[in-house]
Simulated scan of single mutants.
Amino acid sequence: MPADTSCITLCGPWTHRKIQANGAQFHAAYAGEHRDDRPLVLLVHGFPQYWWAWRHQISALAQAGYEVAAIDQRGIGGSDKTPNSEDGLTLTQDLIAIVQALGARKAVLVGLGRGGAFSWSAVSMKQDLFSGLVTVSSPHPRTLHRIGTHVTFKTWQQVLGTLVPPMGRKNLRDPQSVRQLLTRWSAPGNDGAASQWEIYSQALQLPGAAQIAVDQLRWTWRAQRNPTGRRYLREAANTVYIPVLAVRGELDPFLPDRAWNKDREFAGGPYRKVRVSDAGHFVPEEQPEVFNRILLNFLAGL
């Protein structure tokens, strides 16, 4: 029975585009028009989502005059599922290549969770291509690989669950498990992300998607144990001098506020951290109006 791919091309105030970059084809939901006086805004989803995570932001950014692309990362959603789709160094280089393929002179990366970590790293590797960085629920990637109390017991529970491939893959293929995951990671009583569990589950049912999503998480947690992982962390450590905005949901159950304490080691330019109430890990979905206002204010100030 053919896979149901209707979740990839959901209708809205956007178009769907295919982008050739870094040896792969990427899917993106695209809106707005290119302008020399404004940067491209590239939206990078986290786990266990795909471009749909940014549905509330795409139109708002386009209406404000920005060219915006919400991508599916390699191996996820409508993007190519290539060999080694889990490699974080490749996923980081993908972001740089996508910006270049879209012909942008400057771009702002907006990344959530793992997408935020790759955005930190992309800016560190190719700073002259970017004019700003926004991370959501994502301290600097070097921080998460340090031993300390910056992560919680729930964080390590999730790590252990994904380090066992059959368990992690089985859970992601079960729609009710995906629903529970989205609910646990959200603020209590906030279903901005959890209400979309059926759509996210459909995307994870695509051939190879659940396996790749688990492999990508495992690669992240084991990065220090392989050569490309160590190179990824090393190249992510360059000081960033462009403006950086860090956004955290006050009720994020996995990343306590102290996890951001080391960001300033890597942010040499303007840096601001904003906390959003009644939001957990998925701030753009849990508090879309608040997040859009924060994001647009940051962009206007560049």
Rank of each mutant, 00 (worst) to 15 (best):
C7S: 14
I8H: 04
T9C: 11
L10F: 10
C11G: 09
T15H: 13
K18Y: 13
G23H: 06
G23D: 07
A24Q: 10
A24L: 07
Q25W: 09
F26Y: 13
H27M: 01
A29D: 02
A29F: 02
Y30H: 15
E33I: 10
E33R: 11
D36F: 11
D37E: 14
P39N: 09
V41I: 15
V44H: 06
Y50R: 03
A53G: 10
H56P: 04
H56L: 06
Q57M: 06
I58D: 04
A60S: 13
A60T: 14
L61F: 05
G65T: 07
Y66L: 09
D72W: 00
D72A: 03
D72R: 00
G78I: 01
S79G: 05
K81R: 15
P83D: 11
N84G: 09
S85G: 13
E86D: 15
G88L: 13
L91D: 03
L95Q: 10
V99M: 08
A107W: 04
G113A: 14
G113M: 06
S119Y: 01
S119H: 02
A122P: 03
A122H: 01
V123P: 00
V123C: 12
Q127V: 03
D128A: 11
F130L: 00
G132P: 00
L133V: 00
V136S: 01
V136Y: 01
L144N: 00
G148Y: 00
V151A: 04
T152K: 01
T155V: 06
L160I: 09
P166N: 02
P166S: 05
G168F: 02
P175C: 06
P175I: 06
Q176W: 14
R179C: 12
Q180G: 08
Q180A: 15
L181C: 09
R184V: 12
W185F: 15
G189E: 11
D191F: 09
G192M: 05
G192D: 02
A193S: 13
A194C: 08
W197P: 01
E198S: 12
Y200H: 11
S201N: 09
Q202D: 10
L204W: 02
P207D: 11
G208V: 08
A210K: 01
Q211P: 04
I212F: 08
L217E: 12
R218Q: 10
T220S: 12
W221F: 15
Q224F: 11
N226G: 09
R230T: 14
R234C: 13
A237P: 11
I242C: 07
P243H: 06
L245E: 00
E250S: 15
D252M: 00
D252Y: 00
D257Q: 13
A259F: 00
F266C: 01
F266Y: 13
A267N: 03
A267M: 06
P270A: 13
Y271R: 06
K273S: 08
R275S: 11
V276I: 13
S277V: 09
D278R: 14
Q287N: 07
P288W: 05
V290K: 13
F291V: 05
N292I: 03
L295V: 06
N297Q: 15
F298C: 06
L299R: 08
L299A: 10
A300H: 13
G301W: 07
